[in-house]
Computed example of a mutant assay.
Amino acid sequence: MKITENIEGFIKAQNEADSTAFANYFTEHATVSDEGSSYSGREEIKGWIEEATEKYNMHTKVIDFTQTGSKGTLTVEASGTFPGSPLVMNYHLEMDGTLISSLRITG
């Protein structure tokens, strides 16, 4: 499994609870879909990850990553203070160059 540098940085920022660095891995008008809610733009994404980090104290460990063209799937084991922890989650990514334009989390 080969993980691209930008995805490694994205996971590192999430695990270090660095919401500003995390949001900077997204395009200016990116979207995130998680737990039935959607967030648009870096500021909303930053707010979402700050709230999720505070609520769940989540840490992710990469299990698998595949990318074909601009689409990728990142499979992680997520642990934290949420029911069923740890859980395997899939991050469905759409990329615009090295930045994420869309993230949909399932699992």
Results as ranks from 00 to 15, higher is better:
Q14I: 11
T4N: 11
S79H: 04
I49A: 02
S101I: 02
M58N: 12
E16R: 03
T66Q: 10
Y39M: 01
T81V: 08
P86W: 03
E54N: 13
S33E: 14
P86V: 05
K61L: 03
L103T: 07
T75P: 05
Y25I: 10
S85W: 09
E50N: 08
I45N: 00
A13C: 06
D64Y: 08
I7H: 06
K2T: 13
F10G: 03
L87Q: 14
H92M: 09
G36M: 10
I11N: 09
M89A: 14
T31I: 11
M58Q: 13
G80H: 02
T31Y: 11
Y39H: 04
W48S: 03
R104E: 14
M95H: 04
I63K: 14
F10D: 11
G36R: 04
Y25Q: 12
S33V: 13
E35H: 15
S70F: 09
H59V: 00
M89Q: 15
T27M: 04
R104V: 15
G69Q: 01
N15F: 06
M1H: 13
T31W: 08
I63W: 05
Y56D: 08
T66A: 06
I45D: 00
G9Q: 13
Y56P: 06
N6S: 01
M58K: 10
A13P: 06
I3M: 06
A30K: 04
S38C: 14
S19R: 02
A13E: 03
S19W: 00
I100E: 05
I105H: 06
T81S: 13
T68I: 12
S37Y: 15
V32W: 07
S70N: 15
K71Y: 12
S79K: 10
T4P: 12
E16S: 10
H92D: 11
E51L: 14
T68A: 12
D34T: 09
L87H: 12
E8Y: 11
A23G: 03
E94S: 00
R42D: 03
G107I: 08
T81W: 11
E44F: 01
N6C: 05
